[in-house]
Structures are given as structure tokens and as C-alpha cells.
Design a binder for these strands. Structure first.
Length: 896
RNA sequence: GGGCGAAUAGCUCAGCGGUUCAGAGCGCCUGCCUUACACGCAGGAUGUCGGGGGUUCGAAUCCCUCUUCGCCCACCA
């Protein structure tokens, strides 16, 4: 049968293929879960990106991993659901729109709450789901029909239900304490949202004069402006330096206020002067001290970070504390000013440079101001405990395992969660108060009057922390609190893939909400990815400008190339170091591999007849060594790739596929099989069947990583129904009928033979086109089999196997001691040959020396496992044979 | 101040609880436009596996320690 004519171009063009293919997958509903008898669900919920976000490489990595897992399990017959969506991202989104209207010279306060929120919605509707479209371009096989948004009406119902239940359970309370306040975003933040950053600051030593005029005490602070809010100075009760002063009073500099010196055990004696200024309204630690000693807690910084008396718990404390010349000054300007004033009064003892961690807003990077205020908190201990118990019982796990300790430590030391934000964009807190009777309650519906007295009411003006909605993602997306079919079928999910930086923000909290509200874990495995970094190992970020835009890569090299590099380059949880300045070097390997696959396909497709005989119907007698070898390698590859994916070793799965497709199928089998195909002999039928089988397996195995190229080629294979798709085709299973260790061993010797001849040809500079003669002196059965591989050797090494036993020519020894004699057609260069052989002999002697020493070692022989000793003995035997053969050849040549 | 991770060829990394494990890709050198592929083919060079100690018959691989980087947590003002 003549080869079919496949006029494919020699270069794979991803851009022609990707968009139409993605459309085809979507229009056939390939990404939706397909229930069926015996099909177990497999569910991944996407970490919802910010609705206003754009795709960066971190998303690329993390979503490609999810897609690989989903495609793998889909092929394995699971009823897969990858549920996509976006997060309303309270502060982040509000900031974006605030910047937008700032360009119009307006603030949100100019617009008013309602108009502003309307404006944000507009923005979300117009540019909102860009990131989801971008995910499609990298091939993400999400079920887009189930796309969710954390501000959807259904979702809002879940958020409200959760709030009210927690309220009813007494787990939500109003806390009056010092919280993290962002003076730029004008909102409270949770502990997690106020990130520590190492900063070099100044430690100021300030003298506080004693009220009785008998001297002064010196305190140290990094925030001198807060001294205006001081209501005490404390020393450690056991500190002898402090003893004479406890009970005295000091005059607070720059004010007319007198404050006491008290003893408190929280003071670290080793740090600073031993005397600590206490600012209860502007420091969480000082707040605790203030509570212990019943101190006044005046606020001296306003919400926007400017100086000013702003209430607080004054308890008769004289106001104002902030001098007129400082009123309204920004805190950092005020700091400088205060330092100058102190200096002028001789109250600044000294300053020193100081390394410390400063909390910054995770959204705008402003330095966070601790501030006394009233906020809603969730009691976390009761939520954490069941999760810890379940974790210890092994109900869910982390990969890589090392995150487990981090998780456990955080959960064990969990602190209450400040969930109220002074923003406008988000879920409004459903707490209502009666203006008449002060009754306060949380409500599932919007009430019209006080249920107690019928009085007028007002709703809490604040919104909920954005994470208070995302922590419900695994079930709120499925319709909870309604008892929906989706909820019943797809909760709990299975694998959660995300970046470690949101382990506390999100992962830990989802576990808590899952156990608390549904009594079940939300997922079984948490896969924490690595971080994308540049060549200096800096995290890729917009502000550093060192990022790689995944869509640039798609545009240059195709989605498969991007995916390939991301997956192959990241070992389990390891960081991914990529070079933003050399995209070619970074992504060409993926492009090259896709192109290689394309060309393997091009060749095979051109050979295959319209009807390929199924493997099972082949007469085994027509199979050659190469056939049996590649079939055996195929089964082994299937098993190894499957195992690697099951263990989340995506890099290893990728590597194995690469070695198989390129290093075995293309480099050896395709080359070996060519003569048989050209001859159009009976053997061609078998060759066709083997090619089709092995290439088909390779495409199936590679599909999760490089879906576009594999789908494209797979559809062209003969025998495909027009509507058959690789994306929904079954995962291959290793067939023990084709396992063949003998063929693997024999073919390895064939490979050695070919390599040896090629090496000799290169060393002797034999032109590629001129044929050489080859004599094989076989010492084992395996090599005798080799002598029947003349056609293959001819093809691969351009060497004619001589029937005669010519012992002339260049020489090589195989690993089993068999010898090769390569007739180069004339006398050989004895000097070159001597050098070649004696180099080889030296190498062998060295190896053999250490091996023999090992075997001569009594304790090795007696203590090492017997099978190891046996293997070493065999090895020694083979190496001896090689050595002897080499040595005698060298003797024959008369090398000096 | 705690905890964790990394250190292997010029670069990015693999080596999954020990015995052809000293590897891959890129880069480099030498030949090849061999009718699938020059985004390719064939051949080749390159590393006292961060330093030091220890355990063992045997250690990139396990233990200790040091150095250098990175990350997370933490109320030393």
C-alpha cells in the first residue's frame, strides 16, 4: 500500500492550531464533568484570581499544574470538574477604581458610596474577566459553564449564611483593641494582611524629665511621634535600674501631661534602656499593658495618618495632647518635626540605626499604623481544633510535606480574625442595630424594623474581609447553603493547587470553613507550588519589572512551549528560576520538543496506511528485535509516567515522556524501522502497527502537558472517528503482553554497537556516506542475536556486517565482552588506534581496580546484601572480559 | 529569636532513604542540508556533587557542624 500523502509543513505552527482547537474542545463540552457508571468525581477548584487581575507567570505555573492533573484524571476516566472563577478582591479592586477616578480628580467620597460601588461594578463588567480569557489561551480546561464570582448573588447568600451562623454560635464578637490600620486604604487589616518587612530604621533615645525635677528617665522608640499618646513609662519589676523610679511621674515632652512610671513584666530588660514608653492606643503590646494598668488610651493619629487628637479611651486624660504646630501633619513629617523639637529642648539623648521588621499593607505597601478601634472578629480556636484533629488523623495532606509543620504551627497558635473592613466594595456586614432600643443582631434577610421594639435601624457600614468570602470557595461555588446536586456530587473536592503565600490567608481557612459548616474536608491534597523568580532569585513582580508575561511566551512559542518549560522546570514545590531577558533560551526547549513531536508525527503519518492492523492481530513472528524493544519500552514508559503523575511528580513524568518520544522512539526506532517501510515488505505491516501503537501512547501520555500539539497530531492518526478527541480519550495502560526484558537487553547491545561504530567513524573521520565493514565477535547469546540485525546496523551506523571473521581494523568492546572490528577500508592509523584503546583500557583498569578491591574486601562480601555482591561479581566478570579483549588487541597492534 | 528550603558541568536543574549516579536541557567544540525535523542528526569536552567532621563494606545520596543565599513565623519598644 502506498504511503498516504500528508503534506504537513516541516514546522509546527502553534498559532494556527491553538484557538480553533480550544474552541473545538469547548463546543464539544470536553471540559464539563461527564457522569457515568463507575466514574468517581475528581474536583479541583481554581484559586480564584482577582477579578481585575492579569495573568502572570505564577498563575501560569499554578494553573498549568492544575490542568495537567485534570487532564490526567479525565483521561483516566474520572468525572472531572475544574471549577473556575474570580475573587472580588476587596481592597485590591477598590484601589484600582480609586486610582481610576483619581485621574478624574475625584475621590470615592466625592462620588458617595452607592455611585462608587456602581462604578466598580461597571469596571468589573467591562474589564473584569480578562484573566479567565487569558487562562483559556494557555489551555486551561476549566468547566466554564460553572464560572463563579465571589460577589454573585448565590455566593453572597452563602457568605451571609456563614456570618449569621457564626454570630448565632457566638463565634463573632465586637473587639475593642489595637488593630492594623492602613492609613492609605483607610481600613483595618487582619494580621495576615499586614506583612512584616525588614527595614533599617532609627532608634531614638528620648529623655522624659521626672515631674519632681530630680532628673529624667530615658526611653527608646522607633516611632517618636507616638510619644504624644503615651500614658505611662514601664520598667521590669526586677530591673534594679527601675526600682528607684517606680511610682514616680514623668513630664511627657512637648505636652503638659504627666504620666506614671509603672512596673510591668512584659519589658525586656536587655533591650534599650530598660524603660519603655507606653502608647496604648497605637501599639498592640502597649494596649495590653494599658489594660493591665487601667491606663487612658488617647488616639493622637487620625485615620489618614496625620497627627491630631482623635478620641480613643481618654478616661479624663487631658486633651488636646497634640501641639498646635503638629496638628494635621503627616506622621512621617511629624516624626522629623518632633525629633527637631526634642533636640531643641535637649531631650534627645541619642539615635542609632536599627534593624527591625515593619508591618506594611499587603495591598499598597504603606506602613501600617497600629490603632485602637472597634472591629468584628471571628473566634478561631473552635474552628481550628477540628481541623487539627482531622489533620493529625491523616484526612488531608500537603505536598511537598515540608509545609505541614508550617501549617500545624500556625493552626496551633491561631489568633482571632479581624473580618471588618472600612471599605465599600465587598459583602456588607449583615449586622443591624436599633436606633431606639440599641438591640443588635445579624440577619439573613434585610430587616425593615427592629424585631424587639419596631424601631428604626441601621446596618453596619463596613464590609467583610475579602477572604471571608474566599474561604467558602470549595462549597459556596457549588450552591451551598442549598442542597444542590453539584454540592452533593462535587464536595469534597480532591486536589488544591496554590502558592504557599496564601497558605494561611486561604488554604487553612478553607479547611476550617469546610469542617465547620459541612463537617467534611474540602480537599484531600494541598499541592503547594514553587515561586517564579528571576536569575537573581528575586520573586517576579510587576514593581520590579522582572516578570515574564505568559501571553508573550504564547505569542512567541505557543502555549505548549510555555507549559512544557513550566512543568518540566519545576520539581515538586521547587522554585522556578527563569530568565526574563532571554525568553529564547528559556522557552525554546519546549518549542523544539513540540516541533520534534510534529515531525515524528509527520513521518509516521506519511507512512501509515488508512487501515492499520491492530497490534493484537499481528503475527508475533513478524516482529523484529526493534519492534519488541520499542513495545517493551512503551509499556515501561506508560507505567512510569502514570506513577510519576500519581505522585505529583510532573517534572519527572515530563522527562520520561521526553526520553521516550525523542530518545527512544525517534532516535532509535524510527531510524531502525525505515528500511522495512521503504521495502514495502510484509514486515511493513508490523512496523505500521508498532509505530501507530507507540506514537499513540506517546501522544496520550504527553497530552496533559502539551495538549495542543498532541491533540492536533492524534486526530490525524488513521482510524480516528471524526468526532474523537484526545482530550477525552482514555489514558493508556501498560500491557504485560508486550513487556520483554530480553529484547531490552539485546537492543541495548545493539545500541552499544551502533554507538561504538559511530564513535570510530567520527574519530577516524570517515565521511558519513562511505560504508565500513563490521565484524562482530560474539561471546554471549545476546550478541549472537545482534548478528541478525544487519539491516538495522547498516541503517544506523552505515556499517556492513561481514560474514567473515576479519580481526583487522579499529576495535571496540561491548559491555558483555563481545568484540567489534571495524574495517575502515585500508590500513588504520596505528598511533590513533593505540591511543584510543589505551585510553579505554586505562579507564577500564581503574574501574576494575576499585571493583576488585571491593570484592576482595572481606567485610563487603560478608556484610553487603548477597544480591548486591552477586551483581558486582557479574560486573567484574564482564569488565574482565572487556579488559582482556582490549589488552590482547593492544598487544596485537604492538602499541608502545 | 525560632522554623524551613537551597548549595551538583559556564547557566537552569534532575539524581525519588546507598552499590555503571556523576546525568539532562541550554551553551561550547568537531563533522553532517543522511528524502520527519538545522527548532535537526552524529560525535565530543567540561564537575575534588559549597567547606569540615562522622556513621557504614560502601555517601551528591544518612547524621553533625560551618559558610553563603532564599523563604516563613515571632509583641524586643
Amino acid at each position: 500500500m502506498p504511503p498516504r500523502d500528508f503534506a504537513l509543513p516541516p514546522q509546527y505552527n502553534p498559532h494556527e492550531v491553538e484557538a480553533p482547537l480550544y474552541q473545538a474542545w469547548m463546543s464539544r463540552g470536553a471540559f464539563a464533568p461527564h457522569p457515568g457508571p463507575g466514574r468517581e468525581p475528581y474536583v479541583i477548584v481554581i484559586p480564584p484570581p482577582n477579578v481585575t487581575g492579569v495573568l502572570h507567570l505564577g498563575h501560569g505555573l499554578n494553573n498549568t499544574i492544575q490542568d495537567v492533573l485534570i487532564r490526567f484524571e479525565r483521561a483516566r476516566g474520572r468525572e472531572t470538574l475544574w471549577l473556575p472563577g474570580t475573587d472580588h478582591a476587596g481592597i485590591a479592586t477598590q484601589n484600582v477604581v480609586e486610582r481610576l477616578i483619581a485621574a478624574e480628580g475625584k475621590t470615592r467620597f466625592d462620588l458617595g458610596r452607592e455611585a462608587f460601588v456602581e462604578r466598580v461594578w461597571q469596571f468589573v463588567h467591562t474589564t473584569g474577566n480578562t484573566i479567565l480569557e487569558q487562562l483559556k489561551r494557555i489551555g486551561a480546561s476549566c468547566d466554564w459553564s460553572r464560572t463563579r464570582f465571589t460577589l454573585d448573588p448565590d455566593y453572597a447568600r452563602a457568605v451571609r449564611e456563614v456570618f449569621v451562623r457564626l454570630w448565632e454560635q457566638g463565634l463573632i464578637y465586637r473587639g475593642h483593641r489595637v488593630i492594623h490600620w492602613c492609613p492609605r486604604c483607610l481600613t483595618a487589616l487582619s494580621d495576615e494582611e499586614a506583612e512584616f518587612k525588614e527595614t533599617t530604621g532609627t532608634l531614638y533615645y528620648i529623655r522624659y524629665p521626672l515631674a519632681d525635677g530630680s532628673g529624667h528617665v530615658t526611653v527608646a522608640t522607633t516611632r517618636p511621634e507616638t510619644l504624644l499618646g503615651d500614658t505611662a513609662v514601664v520598667v521590669h519589676p526586677d530591673d534594679p535600674r527601675g526600682a528607684p523610679y517606680v511610682g514616680k511621674r514623668v513630664k511627657l515632652p512637648l505636652t503638659s501631661v504627666e504620666i506614671p512610671i509603672l512596673a510591668d513584666p512584659s519589658v525586656e530588660k536587655e533591650f534599650g534602656t530598660g524603660f519603655v514608653k507606653v502608647t496604648p492606643a497605637h501599639d498592640a503590646n502597649d494596649f495590653e499593658i494599658g489594660v493591665r494598668h487601667g491606663l487612658a488610651m488617647p488616639l493622637i493619629l487620625r485615620e489618614d495618618g496625620t497627627m491630631g487628637d482623635d478620641g480613643g479611651d481618654r478616661q479624663g486624660d487631658p486633651a488636646p495632647r497634640v501641639p498646635a504646630e503638629l496638628q494635621g501633619l503627616d506622621r512621617f513629617a511629624a516624626r522629623k518635626q518632633i525629633v527637631r523639637m526634642l533636640e531643641a529642648q535637649g531631650l534627645l539623648a541619642k539615635t542609632e540605626s536599627h534593624q527591625h521588621a515593619v508591618r506594611r499593607c499587603y495591598r499598597c505597601d504603606s506602613i501600617v499604623e497600629p490603632r485602637l478601634s472597634d472591629q468584628w472578629f471571628v473566634k478561631m480556636k473552635p474552628l481550628a481544633e477540628p481541623v487539627l484533629a482531622a489533620y493529625r488523623a491523616g484526612e488531608f495532606r500537603f505536598v511537598p510535606e515540608r509545609w505541614e509543620a508550617t501549617f500545624e504551627h500556625w493552626m496551633e497558635n491561631i489568633r482571632d480574625w479581624n473580618i471588618s473592613r472600612q471599605l465599600w466594595w465587598g459583602h456588607r456586614i449583615p449586622v443591624f442595630s436599633c436606633t431606639a432600643c440599641s438591640h443588635q443582631w445579624a440577619d439573613r434577610e434585610d430587616p425593615t424594623a427592629c424585631p424587639k421594639c419596631g424601631g428604626a435601624l441601621e446596618q453596619d457600614p463596613d464590609v467583610l474581609d475579602t477572604w471571608f468570602s474566599s474561604w467558602l470557595w470549595p462549597f459556596a461555588t457549588l450552591g451551598w447553603p442549598e442542597d444542590t446536586p453539584d454540592l452533593r456530587r462535587y464536595y469534597p473536592g480532591h486536589t488544591l493547587v496554590t502558592a504557599p503565600e496564601i497558605l494561611f490567608f486561604w488554604v487553612a481557612r478553607m479547611l476550617m470553613s469546610g469542617y465547620h459548616f459541612l463537617g467534611k474536608k474540602p480537599f484531600t491534597t494541598v499541592y503547594l507550588t514553587g515561586t517564579a523568580r528571576d536569575m537573581q532569585h528575586r520573586r517576579m513582580s510587576k514593581s520590579l519589572g522582572n516578570g515574564i508575561d505568559p501571553l508573550d511566551v504564547v505569542g512567541l512559542y505557543g502555549a505548549d512551549a510555555l507549559r512544557w518549560t513550566l512543568i518540566a522546570g519545576s520539581a515538586l514545590g521547587a522554585d522556578l528560576i527563569l530568565d526574563p531577558d532571554d525568553l529564547e533560551a528559556t522557552f525554546a526547549p519546549g518549542r523544539n520538543f513540540a516541533n520534534k513531536l510534529w515531525n515524528i508525527g509527520r513521518f509516521i503519518l506519511a507512512q501509515l496506511p488508512a487501515q492499520v492492523t491492530p497490534l493484537q492481530r499481528l503475527d508475533r513472528a513478524t516482529l523484529t528485535l526493534s519492534d519488541r524493544w520499542i513495545l517493551a519500552r512503551t509499556q515501561r514508559t506508560i507505567a512510569e509516567v502514570t506513577a510519576a503523575l500519581e505522585q505529583f511528580r510532573l517534572d519527572e513524568a515530563t522527562r520520561r515522556c521526553f526520553e521516550f518520544a525523542w530518545g527512544e522512539l525517534a532516535d532509535w526506532y524510527v531510524e531502525a524501522v525505515k528500511p522495512r517501510l521503504a521495502a514495502d515488505a510484509a514486515g511493513a505491516t508490523a512496523a505500521h502497527a508498532v509505530l501507530a501503537h507507540c506514537f499513540d501512547a506517546a501522544l496520550r501520555l504527553l497530552h496533559p502537558v502539551v495538549p495542543f500539539i498532541t491533540e492536533t497530531l492524534w486526530q490525524k492518526l488513521p482510524g480516528r472517528a471524526p468526532d474523537e478527541l484526545l482530550v477525552t480519550a482514555p489514558w493508556p495502560r501498560p500491557d504485560p503482553a508486550w513487556a520483554d526484558e530480553t529484547a531490552e537487553r539485546e537492543f541495548r547491545l545493539l545500541q552499544e554497537t551502533v554507538s561504538a561504530v559511530r564513535n570510530i567513524r567520527a574519530e577516524y573521520r570517515v565521511p558519513p556516506k562511505s560504508s565500513v565493514g563490521l565484524t562482530i565477535k560474539a561471546t554471549t547469546e545476546a550478541v549472537r542475536a545482534l548478528q541478525q540485525q544487519q539491516e538495522t546496523i547498516q541503517r544506523l551506523a552505515n556499517a556492513r556486517v561481514n560474514g567473515a571473521t576479519s580481526r583487522a581494523g579499529a576495535h571496540a568492546v561491548l559491555s558483555d565482552g563481545s568484540e567489534l572490528f571495524v574495517d575502515l577500508g585500508g590500513s588504520i592509523d596505528v598511533a590513533l588506534e593505540c591511543r584510543r584503546l589505551s585510553d579505554e583500557l586505562t579507564r577500564l583498569e581503574k574501574q576494575l581496580g576499585s571493583l576488585s578491591a571491593k570484592l576482595a574486601n572481606e567485610s563487603f562480601v560478608s556484610r553487603a546484601p548477597p544480591d548486591v555482591v552477586a551483581r558486582e561479581r557479574e560486573k567484574e566478570h564482564a569488565w574482565r572480559a572487556q579488559r582482556d579483549a582490549l589488552a590482547s588487541k593492544i598487544a596485537t597492534l604492538g602499541c608502545s
